Amino acid sequence: MNKFLGYIFTPVFYFFFLLSLLIFQPIQWICYRFFGYKAHKASVDYLNFFLTYCQVFLGSSTTFVNHQDLPLNHPIIFVANHQSMYDIPGIFWFLKKYHVKFISKIELTKGIPSISFNLKYGGGANINRKDSKQAVSEIIKLGRRMKDNNWSAMIFAEGTRAKDGRIKPFQVGGIATLLKTVPNALIVPIAIENSWKVVQYGTYPLSFGEKLRWTVLDPITTAGRNAEELTNMAEGAIRKALNQEA
């Protein structure tokens, strides 16, 4: 039934999703060019509010659980599993007060309304996966911005999407590189559920009536721990939350 209803409601979802991207493209440009970082960030926050709740047009629910008392004046590295592009808007919106910046493929900085503009000018790291030197340099620059501004970063440590929802082994590289610049950063795992189901049939139809859920887990302090240990602890916490064994 969710596939059948998807055929009907996917065009409605795509219409409002794309409309949000098109409307916020000039809004972002104006905010960034004339009013600076704070205004630009606010425009991106509200863009992601609309992108997050576009899921209602697919009959899907959106639940974000965060019982953690995370510091606002301290850099944080959020580490999550990755299931689909629909993981991202909710993280932007619900964690907006932490100034979360993403590590993204450099190819995404061109051609996508609103999204490409934010990736270029929002303060994240845009990496060329074929150029390891450039990738490390960009992540180090992000780490410096985190340190200077008490921003946070979001890392999907699997390195690619898990299309069936099964967690892949986490990679240590991005976390290790950031910790070289911000060694005191707090590691905070996030368990993402069911966004893979939205795209289980591909881009059309999208699945109707799924229950998307993000859960912020207990923070992990970096003191006395190396990057590999921290990565393994984050992966273990997410696997436990999602009842998935290694």
Results as ranks from 00 to 15, higher is better:
residue 5 L to N: 03
residue 11 P to M: 07
residue 13 F to R: 09
residue 13 F to T: 00
residue 18 L to V: 11
residue 19 L to C: 13
residue 19 L to A: 13
residue 20 S to K: 00
residue 23 I to H: 00
residue 24 F to R: 03
residue 27 I to V: 15
residue 29 W to E: 15
residue 30 I to F: 13
residue 39 A to L: 07
residue 40 H to T: 12
residue 41 K to Y: 15
residue 41 K to A: 11
residue 49 F to T: 02
residue 57 F to H: 08
residue 65 V to E: 00
residue 69 D to L: 06
residue 70 L to R: 08
residue 71 P to F: 11
residue 79 V to W: 01
residue 81 N to F: 14
residue 83 Q to C: 03
residue 85 M to H: 06
residue 87 D to T: 01
residue 92 F to I: 06
residue 92 F to P: 03
residue 95 L to Y: 07
residue 98 Y to A: 06
residue 99 H to P: 10
residue 102 F to A: 01
residue 103 I to E: 12
residue 103 I to F: 06
residue 106 I to N: 14
residue 110 K to V: 12
residue 112 I to A: 05
residue 112 I to G: 05
residue 113 P to R: 01
residue 114 S to E: 01
residue 114 S to H: 02
residue 116 S to E: 08
residue 120 K to S: 13
residue 120 K to V: 10
residue 127 I to P: 04
residue 130 K to Y: 03
residue 132 S to D: 11
residue 135 A to R: 05
residue 135 A to T: 10
residue 138 E to C: 14
residue 142 L to A: 03
residue 145 R to D: 14
residue 147 K to Q: 10
residue 148 D to T: 07
residue 149 N to L: 04
residue 150 N to I: 15
residue 152 S to T: 09
residue 156 F to E: 15
residue 157 A to R: 02
residue 163 K to V: 11
residue 166 R to T: 09
residue 168 K to A: 07
residue 180 K to A: 02
residue 181 T to A: 04
residue 181 T to I: 04
residue 182 V to W: 00
residue 182 V to I: 03
residue 183 P to Q: 01
residue 183 P to T: 01
residue 185 A to I: 05
residue 185 A to N: 01
residue 188 V to A: 14
residue 193 E to V: 08
residue 195 S to L: 00
residue 195 S to I: 02
residue 200 Q to A: 13
residue 201 Y to K: 14
residue 201 Y to L: 10
residue 204 Y to I: 12
residue 212 L to F: 11
residue 213 R to V: 10
residue 222 T to S: 13
residue 224 G to L: 10
residue 225 R to A: 13
residue 226 N to A: 12
residue 227 A to S: 09
residue 229 E to C: 00
residue 234 A to F: 01
residue 240 K to P: 15
residue 240 K to E: 14
residue 245 E to K: 10
